[in-house]
Nucleic acid binder design. Structure first.
Length: 739
DNA sequence: TAGCCGATAGTTTTT
DNA sequence: CTATCGGCTA
């Protein structure tokens, strides 16, 4: 096989990219702007390191956040190099930690068959724990405890390392400790535990630490701005003194602070790894000039940044189309009309996306699209391996490989119903608590007295016997059919066909599953002749790669998703909807410190998704939680230079543009006569939803009003200035109606 | 043990 | 508005 020359590998890179790819074996921080060829730089660097003999596949550690990104890198890498990238430690933080723990389960104090808890499983454990400790939901809400535990773990802190500031916190910490020991007893680990446990082992076990520190001399990280405290510490520990850490990220695209991501890790990296200046990738290969101008202008309003300005060699392109609709329904209709028009012009639906800040906004869009017969695909919602029937089927498998998994037992002991009711389960739990054994052990001891329990025990024992002998698909089939699960869904009334299909799909997945490719079994310890290894891999993959959000691949469909979900994606045409104060930027975020900057980064991410055409839309009125809300256009729209914007009127064939030269004190407020709000009561000359100007507070919208003996009392949302209550008797002279 | 009812809450979510 | 959950009843 011909080996590509180094020159061939590097051909076509721009000077910035070349500098990054061929950076010497020293720490580097690459500031990779949106659409600047980040993945290419990352993969080419790895290929270059390998090809020039600076590194071997064994000495490279490459980390991503998503499975998608990891797969993408693996794919591109194998296209660049004839070597097998299988042996490389390339994967997600959690995937790699998982591999580490499987390899060193003994050092980690875990059973060989330990199982992974996803968020749903974790919540179930937390609920069970609180019940066990007799703590009411009102005292500690399960979700808040779950959040607390995860946040602490992501900060690298165990319960024993925490000090309480108040009694409530002390209780939370006690629960955290109890939770950890519960998980330990049951042989299960949550996502954060995968990381924390790995980190702790590396820290305490010198043999392992020096082994890995010596092994990895190149550590590469993607999306570095999204790392949390623990991930940073883990990387630093693994890298040791000598590894060349190559961190790639974009501080302007840090949008996961609510999940513990710390942008500050970027500056921290510069200091702690002695990097004087980041390498900037500012050449954008995605968007036309006007879109980049908008993105640059918006993000320039943020104070805390490392600084970066995207440029393109493409032309300025079309202007960004802006539309303020009367309400959310009209906004959705506009999107429908434009999507239709673009599709007629030859653009695939797939190449267009409708983005919104929160999932709740999708409904109106969905209805309009459905009515118009436009195929669409919504991202978000339940993923394949999170579905009830799938989790049930997998719980049988989990119980088979790890009978101490109380979670799994409780999930399936009476699904399908086999006469083990609440009181029987209570008996089992009581027996287990008494002697400190697992539910499974308690159940086996109670089987002699209870035939229903005996039947269940027999079912699981039968699966266990098969596990050692039959293949994964056969075991999966046994779990689905012998348990009666399939029969259960077949005989249940209602729309169960979907669940049956999913169970069949699960069987297909088991048949198609290749443990060697699951990314967890690349080490010599993996025994491909041991059926149990395949089952463990399958279960782990199910937890760590919960699958696609929605099926229906291959179909040409319009893409609907939140801005968060759109990160990393790109489309020819993008509709950025719901650009209203309070919604985007969201009200919640504005209460938080630096919350507005995070929202602005989100806006930056949203804008930079578009290649050629970008629409910014907003509604004056929107139905939220069953109530009509009035809002002003998002401040982010005002932050975009007028020169790249093109205002559209809200009516008929939508593309009718408003004269560019129209005096533009505030184009949003020059509402057309046709678009007048439906008759509303008069409040001393004012109306609900009206836009007004106040000499001190600026522009606002009347969101509430009450009649008074004399005049009226108006509640006005002045956006940045806040919501004010004004009395017309006093304020009338200071208020001007502008629409 | 399913099914119904009322109360409740309701940003974003890579693993 | 509307999805979800816990408690209660048939």
């Amino acid at each position: 096989m011909e080996i590509l020359s180094s020159a061939g590998l590097l051909a076509g890179l721009n000077s910035e990219q070349l500098a990054a790819v061929t950076w010497p074996a020293q720490p580097a921080l690459v500031l990779a702007g949106a659409g600047s060829g980040k993945t290419r730089v990352l993969t080419t660097r790895i290929a270059w390191l390998l090809q020039t003999g600076q590194a071997s596949v064994h000495s490279i550690l490459a980390v991503t956040f998503t499975n998608k990104a990891a797969k993408e890198m693996q794919l591109r890498l194998s296209a660049l190099l004839p070597v097998s990238v299988r042996a490389m430690w390339l994967g997600t933080f959690h995937g790699l930690c998982h591999r580490f723990l499987r390899l060193h389960y003994q050092e980690a104090g875990l059973p060989k068959t330990f199982q992974i808890l996803d968020i749903g499983d974790q919540l179930a454990v937390v609920k069970r724990l609180l019940k066990q400790l007799n703590i009411a939901d009102e005292v500690i809400a399960p979700r808040s405890l779950q959040g607390f535990i995860n946040a602490q773990k992501e900060n690298g802190l165990r319960a024993s390392q925490l000090t309480a500031r108040d009694p409530h916190e002390r209780l939370m910490i006690e629960c955290y400790a109890a939770y950890d020991s519960l998980c330990q007893n049951e042989g299960v680990v949550d996502f954060a535990e995968l990381m924390l446990r790995s980190y702790e082992i590396l820290q305490s076990n010198e043999v392992l630490r020096s082994h890995y520190q010596n092994r990895f001399n190149h550590v590469l990280i993607d999306e570095f701005q999204d790392t949390n405290k623990l991930q940073y510490a883990w990387l630093k520990l693994l890298a040791g003194e000598h590894a060349a850490v190559f961190a790639v990220g974009d501080d302007d695209q840090s949008i996961y602070r609510f999940r513990g991501a710390e942008v500050a890790n970027m500056t921290r990296f510069l200091h702690e790894f002695g990097v004087s200046e980041p390498i900037r990738l500012e050449q954008n290969y995605r968007s036309v000039g006007n879109i980049l101008t908008a993105a640059n202008a918006v993000i320039a309003h943020n104070a805390s940044r490392l600084g970066k300005n995207l440029r393109t060699e493409a032309g300025s392109g079309e202007k960004i189309r802006v539309l303020q609709a009367i309400n959310d329904i009209e906004e959705a209709q506009f999107v429908v009309d434009e999507v239709k028009a673009l599709h007629r012009e030859g653009l695939n639906y797939m190449q267009m996306a409708v983005l919104y800040r929160s999932n709740a906004q999708s409904r109106v869009l969905e209805q309009a699209l459905f009515r118009a017969g436009i195929p669409y695909k919504i991202y978000g919602g339940l993923r394949f391996y999170e579905r009830q029937e799938i989790k049930h089927a997998l719980a049988y498998l989990r119980l088979t490989v790890n009978p101490n998994d109380d979670n799994a037992l409780l999930r399936v002991i009476n699904v399908p119903a086999r006469g083990i009711g609440a009181r029987s389960i209570e008996n089992i739990q009581a027996a287990a608590n008494e002697t400190g054994i697992s539910l499974w052990q308690a159940a086996t001891s109670l089987a002699a007295k209870n035939s229903k329990i005996a039947a269940f025990v027999h079912l699981i024992e039968n699966l266990q016997a098969q596990a050692a002998q039959v293949s994964l698909p056969e075991l999966m089939a046994a779990a689905i059919y012998d348990s009666g699960l399939m029969e259960h869904y077949r005989t249940q009334k209602g729309e169960q066909q979907e669940r049956i299909n999913n169970l069949e799909e699960l069987l297909n997945a088991a048949v198609a599953f290749k443990p060697q490719e699951s990314g967890f079994n690349l080490e010599p310890e993996y025994d491909e002749n041991d059926p149990l290894s395949a089952v463990l891999s399958f279960l782990s993959t199910a937890s760590l790669e919960a699958g696609e959000h929605q099926a229906g691949q291959g179909e040409d469909a319009l893409q609907l998703m939140t801005v968060h979900a759109a990160k990393g994606l790109e489309f020819d045409g993008v509709f950025l909807t719901g650009l209203e104060e309070g919604l985007f930027p969201s009200e919640y975020s504005m209460a938080e410190r630096d919350g507005l900057e995070e929202e602005r980064r989100l806006m930056y991410v949203a804008i930079t998704r578009a290649r050629k055409r970008l629409y910014l839309t907003m509604a004056e009125q929107r139905l939220l939680h069953g109530q009509t809300h009035f809002a002003l256009p998002s401040r982010f729209v005002d932050e975009i230079p007028e020169a790249v914007l093109h205002y559209l009127s809200a009516h008929k064939n939508s593309l009718v543009s408003r004269q560019q030269t129209t005096q533009r004190t505030n184009p949003f407020h020059s509402r057309s006569k046709l678009a007048e709000t439906p008759a509303s009561t008069d409040f001393d000359g004012f109306q609900l939803g009206q836009n007004v100007h106040h000499e001190r507070f600026g522009t606002g919208v009347i969101i509430d009003a009450t009649h008074k003996a004399e005049g009226a009392r108006l509640t006005i949302n002045f956006g940045k200035q806040g919501i004010k209550e004004l009395d017309t008797v006093f304020a009338k002279s200071k208020l001007t109606i502008i629409s």
